[in-house]
Write a protein that binds this DNA or RNA. Sequence first.
DNA 1: TCTGTGACTAACC
DNA 2: CGGTTAGCCACAG
Length: 110
Amino acid sequence: METSGNFFEKVYEVAKQIPFGRVTSYGAIAKYLGAAKSARMVGWAMNASHNNADIPAHRVVNRNGLLTGKFHFDGTNLMQQLLENEGIVVKENQIQNFQNVFWDPFKELL
DNA sequence: TCTGTGACTAACC
DNA sequence: CGGTTAGCCACAG
């Protein structure tokens, strides 16, 4: 029941709202949900997002714009491929011009 | 209930 | 600049 899955659900809601060609960080989502100290939980939710095909997990990176979760995708560079497909420049698993493509839920959703 | 773990982050060495 | 430590919290066993 919604005894604990509510947190994941919120993460999914935010993740789904990430616009095309934009990315955000785990901490940003966590803070938006009121759990800034639970950035790991956001990542954990992404891990569970395998059951949710509507979750663009590739648009969620760490606060450095580094594709820390790329190894969780099927291909070794699938995550990067998806981001580049959206016009995002990625080099060495790191998003270039990160702040330019960064999508802040506080500024966009709030 | 306790323990281990993790797609984080910051601080420290 | 890279490795370690610590805090954080939710989930699985």
